[in-house]
């Protein structure tokens, strides 16, 4: 993951854009990157759906109706019902809350902790940097899902715990990328100037260095959003994420959805579509944001 940040241009451009106000920037983004804008629209829609779930969901997502089990999609139940007679559409709508909370929670905490560690590591250098990097290497040599699984096993599977479990494997991945951006900033004259002015470490890191790794930070944050949602779905699919009867997309694909796949395919199709669409939208948006902010940054 080699990163070369054309620093002055990015900073200058960012300053210029800042002056123009965020509405103009948003409009320019939409015009130039229509795919990304489409992604952003879907994301906004999803957030709206998640926020208004109580108003727009036609049924209670937990209401069991043994008379109407495995009902086909119809005017009453647009997307059919599941093996407990629960309305699939309502469960999808409520599931978006789980997905969004995990997605935004894990991505925000993961990217932020990663950024602080990365910048700190680059700033202090020497021993601190070496030890932190070794520690990160250790964490990175676990596959994402395995570390998340282990974390869930330790913490238990309530929603905040699932968020933490997904956050932890993301931290070192972000720290690695941010560190290499921060390394080039450390030797900038303004950091030297801040140091000679006698500012403390915390102030230099927070006020002088962090704002200048905003571009890679935002890119990692958006890249993590989709990944976190996917990871949450995988965990709940394995039965190790949030537990029934909470509505979660991965959970809806589990068990009965596979057993009754032949007779009630809607149970297996729609939650998967929801996951794919959400992650797709987040990725489209994240990709365009990366192209706009820093096309050379590679996010794996």
């Amino acid at each position: 993951m080699a990163i070369r940040v054309p620093l002055d241009t990015t900073v200058e451009a960012a300053r210029a854009e800042h002056r123009r106000g965020w509405m103009t920037v948003a409009l320019a983004f939409c015009r130039r990157r229509s795919l990304g804008a489409a992604g952003a629209v879907v994301v906004l829609l999803m957030i709206a759906v998640g926020l208004t779930a109580t108003l727009i969901a036609p049924y209670d997502p937990l209401a069991v109706d043994f008379g109407g089990m495995l009902a086909r999609p119809s005017a009453d139940h647009w997307l059919g019902t599941d093996a407990f007679g629960r309305d699939v559409l309502s469960r999808l709508i409520y599931g978006s809350r789980t997905a969004l909370m995990v997605g935004f929670g894990a991505a925000f905490f993961g990217a932020t902790a990663g950024a602080i560690l990365g910048v700190g590591s680059a700033y202090f250098g020497g021993r601190v940097d070496l030890y932190l990097q070794r520690l990160m290497d250790v964490f990175i040599s676990f596959p994402l899902i395995i570390l998340a699984l282990a974390m869930v096993a330790i913490l238990g599977n309530s929603l905040p715990n699932v968020i933490t479990a997904i956050t932890i494997p993301m931290i070192p991945r972000c720290a690695l990328v941010i560190r290499s951006s921060a390394l080039s900033i450390r030797d900038m004259p303004y950091v030297d100037a801040a140091r000679t002015s006698g500012f403390g470490h915390a102030r230099i890191i927070l006020r002088h260095m962090l704002p200048n790794v905003m571009a890679p930070y935002l890119i990692m944050l958006t890249a993590f959003l989709g990944q976190a949602i996917l990871l949450e779905a995988s965990l709940s699919f394995l039965g190790l994420g949030v537990q029934e009867p909470v509505a979660a997309w991965g959970l809806m694909l589990r068990g009965a959805a596979v057993d009754f796949a032949e007779t009630a395919p809607w149970m297996a199709i729609f939650p998967g579509l929801a996951i794919s669409l959400a992650v797709f939208a987040f990725n489209l948006f994240g990709d365009s944001l990366r192209d706009a902010l820093d096309p050379r940054l590679r996010v794996l």
């Binding site: 989709g226 996917l230 779905a233 995988s234 699919f237 991965g250 694909l253 959805a257 596979v258 796949a261 032949e262 395919p265 297996a268 199709i269 939650p271 998967g272 996951i275 794919s276 669409l277 959400a278 992650v279 797709f280 990725n283």
Partner: peptide
């Protein structure tokens, strides 16, 4: 789309 589609769901769809 490949990045967005969970491979377990793709598997379910294949079997289906």
């Amino acid at each position: 789309a490949g990045l967005a589609t969970p491979s377990f769901w793709l598997g379910i769809l294949m079997i289906l």
